[in-house]
Protein backbone atom coordinates (compact mmCIF):
# COMPACT_ATOMS: atom_id res chain seq x y z
CA UNK A 1 0.00 0.00 0.00
CA UNK A 2 2.84 2.37 0.86
CA UNK A 3 4.28 2.08 -2.63
CA UNK A 4 0.87 2.89 -4.18
CA UNK A 5 0.41 6.01 -2.07
CA UNK A 6 3.99 7.10 -2.68
CA UNK A 7 3.39 6.46 -6.37
CA UNK A 8 0.55 8.94 -6.44
CA UNK A 9 2.36 11.45 -4.25
CA UNK A 10 5.29 11.86 -6.63
CA UNK A 11 5.13 13.82 -9.87
CA UNK A 12 6.70 10.89 -11.71
CA UNK A 13 4.15 8.49 -10.27
CA UNK A 14 1.35 10.72 -11.52
CA UNK A 15 2.95 10.68 -14.96
CA UNK A 16 2.91 6.86 -14.84
CA UNK A 17 -0.82 7.03 -14.05
CA UNK A 18 -1.37 9.39 -17.00
CA UNK A 19 0.62 7.16 -19.34
CA UNK A 20 -0.93 3.87 -18.19
CA UNK A 21 -4.52 5.16 -18.30
CA UNK A 22 -3.76 6.83 -21.62
CA UNK A 23 -2.44 3.55 -23.04
CA UNK A 24 -5.59 1.66 -22.03
CA UNK A 25 -7.85 4.42 -23.39
CA UNK A 26 -5.88 4.34 -26.65
CA UNK A 27 -6.44 0.58 -26.89
CA UNK A 28 -10.16 1.20 -26.40
CA UNK A 29 -10.13 3.84 -29.15
CA UNK A 30 -8.57 1.27 -31.50
CA UNK A 31 -11.05 -1.45 -30.54
CA UNK A 32 -13.99 0.93 -30.81
CA UNK A 33 -12.84 1.96 -34.29
CA UNK A 34 -12.62 -1.66 -35.45
CA UNK A 35 -16.16 -2.25 -34.16
CA UNK A 36 -17.51 0.89 -35.79
CA UNK A 37 -15.94 0.22 -39.17
CA UNK A 38 -18.52 -2.57 -39.51
CA UNK A 39 -20.87 0.19 -40.59
CA UNK A 40 -19.30 -0.22 -44.03
CA UNK A 41 -20.80 -3.72 -44.17
CA UNK A 42 -24.46 -4.65 -44.26
CA UNK A 43 -26.90 -3.30 -41.64
CA UNK A 44 -27.13 -6.84 -40.19
CA UNK A 45 -23.36 -6.93 -39.53
CA UNK A 46 -23.17 -4.04 -37.06
CA UNK A 47 -26.62 -4.76 -35.62
CA UNK A 48 -25.57 -8.33 -34.84
CA UNK A 49 -22.35 -6.99 -33.25
CA UNK A 50 -24.32 -4.48 -31.16
CA UNK A 51 -26.78 -7.17 -30.15
CA UNK A 52 -23.90 -9.43 -29.13
CA UNK A 53 -22.45 -6.69 -26.88
CA UNK A 54 -25.86 -5.98 -25.34
CA UNK A 55 -26.42 -9.69 -24.68
CA UNK A 56 -23.40 -9.80 -22.33
CA UNK A 57 -24.42 -7.23 -19.72
CA UNK A 58 -21.75 -8.26 -17.22
CA UNK A 59 -18.96 -7.81 -19.76
CA UNK A 60 -20.53 -4.66 -21.20
CA UNK A 61 -20.96 -2.93 -17.85
CA UNK A 62 -17.60 -4.15 -16.63
CA UNK A 63 -15.92 -2.53 -19.62
CA UNK A 64 -18.08 0.59 -19.35
CA UNK A 65 -17.33 1.13 -15.67
CA UNK A 66 -13.67 0.32 -16.25
CA UNK A 67 -13.48 2.92 -19.02
CA UNK A 68 -15.27 5.45 -16.85
CA UNK A 69 -12.75 4.85 -14.06
CA UNK A 70 -9.87 5.22 -16.53
CA UNK A 71 -11.27 8.49 -17.86
CA UNK A 72 -11.78 9.78 -14.32
CA UNK A 73 -8.22 8.81 -13.37
CA UNK A 74 -6.80 10.37 -16.55
CA UNK A 75 -8.75 13.62 -16.10
CA UNK A 76 -8.26 14.06 -12.34
CA UNK A 77 -4.53 13.36 -12.57
CA UNK A 78 -4.23 15.74 -15.54
CA UNK A 79 -5.91 18.52 -13.59
CA UNK A 80 -3.74 17.90 -10.52
CA UNK A 81 -0.54 17.89 -12.59
CA UNK A 82 -1.59 21.02 -14.48
CA UNK A 83 -2.28 22.89 -11.25
CA UNK A 84 1.11 21.85 -9.88
CA UNK A 85 2.77 22.86 -13.15
CA UNK A 86 1.08 26.25 -13.12
CA UNK A 87 2.10 26.80 -9.51
CA UNK A 88 5.73 26.04 -10.41
CA UNK A 89 5.99 29.36 -12.28
CA UNK A 90 4.13 32.09 -10.38
CA UNK A 91 5.60 34.96 -12.44
CA UNK A 92 5.26 34.52 -16.21
CA UNK A 93 7.82 35.62 -18.77
CA UNK A 94 7.21 38.68 -20.95
CA UNK A 95 7.77 36.39 -23.91
CA UNK A 96 6.47 32.87 -23.24
CA UNK A 97 9.44 30.56 -23.76
CA UNK A 98 8.18 28.00 -26.21
CA UNK A 99 11.54 27.44 -27.83
CA UNK A 100 12.02 23.91 -29.10
CA UNK A 101 8.69 22.60 -27.82
CA UNK A 102 6.25 20.76 -30.03
CA UNK A 103 3.08 22.87 -30.22
CA UNK A 104 0.81 19.86 -29.62
CA UNK A 105 2.54 19.36 -26.28
CA UNK A 106 1.52 22.81 -25.04
CA UNK A 107 -2.21 22.28 -25.51
CA UNK A 108 -2.78 18.82 -24.01
CA UNK A 109 -5.18 20.14 -21.36
CA UNK A 110 -7.13 22.11 -23.97
CA UNK A 111 -7.37 19.27 -26.49
CA UNK A 112 -8.17 16.86 -23.67
CA UNK A 113 -11.05 19.08 -22.51
CA UNK A 114 -12.54 19.15 -26.02
CA UNK A 115 -12.29 15.36 -26.19
CA UNK A 116 -13.96 15.03 -22.78
CA UNK A 117 -16.82 17.29 -23.94
CA UNK A 118 -17.13 15.22 -27.10
CA UNK A 119 -17.28 11.97 -25.11
CA UNK A 120 -20.17 13.38 -23.05
CA UNK A 121 -22.06 14.33 -26.21
CA UNK A 122 -21.22 11.05 -27.92
CA UNK A 123 -22.55 9.05 -24.97
CA UNK A 124 -25.75 11.11 -24.88
CA UNK A 125 -26.03 10.83 -28.66
CA UNK A 126 -25.51 7.13 -29.34
CA UNK A 127 -25.55 5.40 -25.94
CA UNK A 128 -28.13 7.18 -23.79
CA UNK A 129 -30.06 8.05 -26.99
CA UNK A 130 -31.27 11.37 -25.63
CA UNK A 131 -33.80 12.69 -28.13
CA UNK A 132 -33.53 16.34 -29.04
CA UNK A 133 -29.74 16.47 -29.29
CA UNK A 134 -29.33 14.48 -32.49
CA UNK A 135 -31.27 16.72 -34.90
CA UNK A 136 -33.25 13.77 -36.29
CA UNK A 137 -35.74 12.31 -33.85
CA UNK A 138 -36.09 9.64 -31.21
CA UNK A 139 -33.46 6.96 -31.92
CA UNK A 140 -35.04 4.69 -29.27
CA UNK A 141 -37.89 3.84 -31.59
CA UNK A 142 -35.63 2.34 -34.27
CA UNK A 143 -35.93 -1.41 -34.49
CA UNK A 144 -34.38 -4.02 -36.75
CA UNK A 145 -34.87 -7.75 -37.19
CA UNK A 146 -31.70 -9.85 -37.05
CA UNK A 147 -31.19 -12.74 -39.51
CA UNK A 148 -32.10 -15.10 -36.63
CA UNK A 149 -35.51 -13.41 -36.30
CA UNK A 150 -34.71 -11.54 -33.07
CA UNK A 151 -35.79 -7.93 -32.68
CA UNK A 152 -33.03 -5.54 -31.72
CA UNK A 153 -32.21 -1.85 -31.61
CA UNK A 154 -31.32 -0.65 -35.12
CA UNK A 155 -27.81 0.68 -34.53
CA UNK A 156 -27.07 0.92 -38.25
CA UNK A 157 -30.09 3.16 -38.88
CA UNK A 158 -29.16 5.31 -35.89
CA UNK A 159 -25.64 5.87 -37.25
CA UNK A 160 -26.63 6.58 -40.86
CA UNK A 161 -29.48 8.88 -39.80
CA UNK A 162 -27.34 10.59 -37.18
CA UNK A 163 -24.49 11.55 -39.50
CA UNK A 164 -26.76 12.98 -42.19
CA UNK A 165 -27.09 16.01 -39.91
CA UNK A 166 -24.37 18.46 -40.97
CA UNK A 167 -23.57 19.91 -37.55
CA UNK A 168 -23.32 16.49 -35.95
CA UNK A 169 -20.87 15.38 -38.63
CA UNK A 170 -18.93 18.63 -38.26
CA UNK A 171 -18.70 18.26 -34.47
CA UNK A 172 -17.53 14.67 -34.80
CA UNK A 173 -14.90 15.70 -37.34
CA UNK A 174 -13.64 18.54 -35.13
CA UNK A 175 -13.44 16.14 -32.20
CA UNK A 176 -11.50 13.63 -34.29
CA UNK A 177 -9.08 16.35 -35.41
CA UNK A 178 -8.54 17.34 -31.79
CA UNK A 179 -8.03 13.69 -30.80
CA UNK A 180 -5.45 13.48 -33.59
CA UNK A 181 -3.55 16.41 -32.07
CA UNK A 182 -3.86 14.94 -28.55
CA UNK A 183 -2.63 11.52 -29.66
CA UNK A 184 0.12 13.04 -31.80
CA UNK A 185 1.84 14.10 -28.60
CA UNK A 186 0.32 11.67 -26.11
CA UNK A 187 1.13 8.42 -27.89
CA UNK A 188 4.87 9.08 -27.97
CA UNK A 189 4.93 10.62 -24.50
CA UNK A 190 3.35 7.53 -22.93
CA UNK A 191 6.49 5.61 -23.75
CA UNK A 192 8.70 8.40 -22.44
CA UNK A 193 6.78 8.67 -19.16
CA UNK A 194 6.97 4.93 -18.56
CA UNK A 195 10.68 4.94 -19.39
CA UNK A 196 10.49 3.00 -22.65
CA UNK A 197 12.82 5.09 -24.75
CA UNK A 198 16.38 5.22 -25.93
CA UNK A 199 18.20 6.63 -28.94
CA UNK A 200 17.19 3.66 -31.11
CA UNK A 201 13.55 3.38 -30.10
CA UNK A 202 12.62 7.07 -29.90
CA UNK A 203 12.45 7.62 -33.70
CA UNK A 204 10.42 4.41 -34.02
CA UNK A 205 8.08 5.46 -31.22
CA UNK A 206 7.55 8.84 -32.86
CA UNK A 207 6.83 7.15 -36.18
CA UNK A 208 4.35 4.84 -34.47
CA UNK A 209 2.64 7.83 -32.83
CA UNK A 210 2.37 9.61 -36.15
CA UNK A 211 1.08 6.61 -38.10
CA UNK A 212 -1.33 5.50 -35.39
CA UNK A 213 -2.82 8.95 -34.82
CA UNK A 214 -3.27 9.52 -38.58
CA UNK A 215 -4.81 6.06 -39.03
CA UNK A 216 -7.24 6.66 -36.17
CA UNK A 217 -8.21 10.05 -37.56
CA UNK A 218 -8.83 8.68 -41.05
CA UNK A 219 -10.69 5.63 -39.76
CA UNK A 220 -13.01 7.62 -37.52
CA UNK A 221 -13.49 10.52 -39.97
CA UNK A 222 -14.39 8.13 -42.79
CA UNK A 223 -17.60 7.04 -41.05
CA UNK A 224 -19.44 10.38 -40.69
CA UNK A 225 -18.03 11.77 -43.95
CA UNK A 226 -19.09 8.83 -46.12
CA UNK A 227 -22.52 8.82 -44.49
CA UNK A 228 -22.94 12.58 -44.83
CA UNK A 229 -21.98 12.36 -48.51
CA UNK A 230 -24.65 9.63 -48.83
CA UNK A 231 -22.06 7.06 -49.93
CA UNK A 232 -23.05 4.70 -47.13
CA UNK A 233 -26.56 3.75 -46.04
CA UNK A 234 -28.42 6.56 -47.84
CA UNK A 235 -31.28 4.34 -49.07
CA UNK A 236 -31.55 2.55 -45.74
CA UNK A 237 -31.68 5.88 -43.94
CA UNK A 238 -34.56 7.07 -46.10
CA UNK A 239 -36.71 4.03 -45.34
CA UNK A 240 -35.91 4.39 -41.65
CA UNK A 241 -36.50 8.13 -41.68
CA UNK A 242 -40.01 7.27 -42.84
CA UNK A 243 -40.40 5.03 -39.78
CA UNK A 244 -39.00 7.75 -37.57
CA UNK A 245 -41.24 10.51 -38.85
CA UNK A 246 -44.30 9.86 -36.71
CA UNK A 247 -42.11 9.87 -33.59
CA UNK A 248 -40.41 13.07 -34.67
CA UNK A 249 -43.71 14.68 -35.46
CA UNK A 250 -45.34 13.85 -32.13
CA UNK A 251 -44.06 16.92 -30.34
CA UNK A 252 -44.83 19.63 -32.94
CA UNK A 253 -48.29 18.09 -33.45
CA UNK A 254 -48.97 18.21 -29.73
CA UNK A 255 -47.76 21.79 -29.60
CA UNK A 256 -50.06 22.92 -32.39
CA UNK A 257 -52.86 21.03 -30.69
CA UNK A 258 -52.33 23.09 -27.56
CA UNK A 259 -52.28 26.29 -29.55
CA UNK A 260 -55.55 25.33 -31.19
CA UNK A 261 -57.15 24.99 -27.78
Amino acid sequence: MSSISSLYKSSLGQKYVMAASGTLLFLFVVGHLVGNLQVFGSPELINTYAHFLKSKPLLLWGVRLGLLALVALHVITAVQLSLANKAARPVEYAKPPTYGSAWQSRYMLGTGSVIAAFVVYHLAHFTALLPGINGVGDFRTLEATLPGGEKTHDVYAMIVLGFQVWWVTLFYLVAQAVLFIHLGHGLASMFQSLGFRNHIWWPRIQLFAKVASIAIFIGYALIPVSIYLRVVGADYAETKRFELKPAALVEPAAATGKEAK
Binding site: S10, M108, Q192
Partner: peptide, 20 residues
Protein backbone atom coordinates in the same frame (compact mmCIF):
# COMPACT_ATOMS: atom_id res chain seq x y z
CA UNK B 1 13.09 12.81 -7.38
CA UNK B 2 11.41 13.23 -4.00
CA UNK B 3 13.63 16.24 -3.28
CA UNK B 4 12.79 17.65 -6.72
CA UNK B 5 9.07 17.42 -5.90
CA UNK B 6 9.61 18.95 -2.48
CA UNK B 7 11.36 21.96 -4.04
CA UNK B 8 8.22 22.85 -6.01
CA UNK B 9 9.38 22.16 -9.56
CA UNK B 10 6.67 21.20 -12.06
CA UNK B 11 6.27 17.88 -13.86
CA UNK B 12 7.48 16.78 -17.28
CA UNK B 13 5.09 17.03 -20.23
CA UNK B 14 7.74 16.02 -22.78
CA UNK B 15 7.61 19.33 -24.65
CA UNK B 16 11.31 19.09 -25.48
CA UNK B 17 12.09 22.73 -24.58
CA UNK B 18 14.71 21.72 -22.00
CA UNK B 19 16.68 19.61 -24.45
CA UNK B 20 16.55 22.41 -27.03
Amino acid sequence: VDQMDAEGFGGCTVTGSCEA
